[in-house]
Amino acid sequence: MSPGKLPNSLTIENICNGISIARNPVLQSLAEYILSYKGLGTGVGRAIAAYPNITFLNDVDTEQFKVIIPRP
């Protein structure tokens, strides 16, 4: 669960197709140089590959983005 809805015009269909938009571009620009991780914007695609039954919910009313990974 993440506080805040998806940024700008980003939709669940977009993120499932590999499109990403930074929610906090300032933090992102700093993280690129501080963290050793180089897979920026690839997390959703990797999650879908690992868990094909994953569900994404963008609740605009409560301004929360939820990811549900069902247990086997």
Rank of each mutant, 00 (worst) to 15 (best):
M1Y: 04
P3D: 14
K5V: 06
K5D: 09
L6C: 07
S9K: 03
S9I: 05
L10W: 00
L10V: 06
T11E: 04
I12P: 00
I12K: 01
I12D: 06
I12C: 04
I12R: 03
E13T: 08
E13H: 04
N14H: 10
N14W: 02
I15K: 03
I15A: 00
I15Q: 00
I15C: 00
C16G: 00
C16Q: 12
N17Y: 07
N17H: 04
S20W: 14
S20C: 11
S20V: 11
I21Y: 14
N24L: 08
N24A: 09
P25C: 06
P25L: 03
V26M: 06
V26T: 10
L27T: 10
L27Q: 07
L27H: 14
L27K: 15
L27Y: 11
Q28G: 03
Q28W: 05
S29I: 01
S29C: 00
S29M: 03
A31Q: 11
A31M: 10
A31V: 01
E32K: 05
Y33S: 05
Y33Q: 07
I34K: 05
I34C: 03
I34F: 02
I34A: 07
L35R: 00
L35W: 05
L35Q: 08
S36Y: 11
S36I: 01
S36N: 11
S36H: 12
Y37I: 14
Y37S: 08
Y37V: 12
Y37L: 10
K38C: 15
K38P: 09
G39Y: 15
G39F: 14
L40I: 11
G41Q: 11
G43H: 04
V44S: 06
V44K: 09
V44Q: 06
V44E: 10
V44W: 13
G45K: 01
G45N: 12
G45P: 06
G45S: 13
G45W: 12
G45F: 10
R46G: 08
R46S: 07
I48N: 11
A49N: 07
A49M: 09
A49Y: 14
N53T: 00
N53K: 09
N53Y: 10
T55K: 14
L57F: 11
L57H: 09
N58I: 10
D59W: 13
D59A: 15
V60T: 13
D61A: 02
D61V: 04
T62P: 08
E63N: 14
E63A: 15
E63S: 15
Q64T: 13
Q64V: 13
F65D: 08
K66L: 14
K66N: 09
K66T: 13
I68L: 09
I68Y: 02
I69D: 05
I69L: 13
P70E: 14
P70L: 10
R71C: 13
R71F: 11
P72C: 02
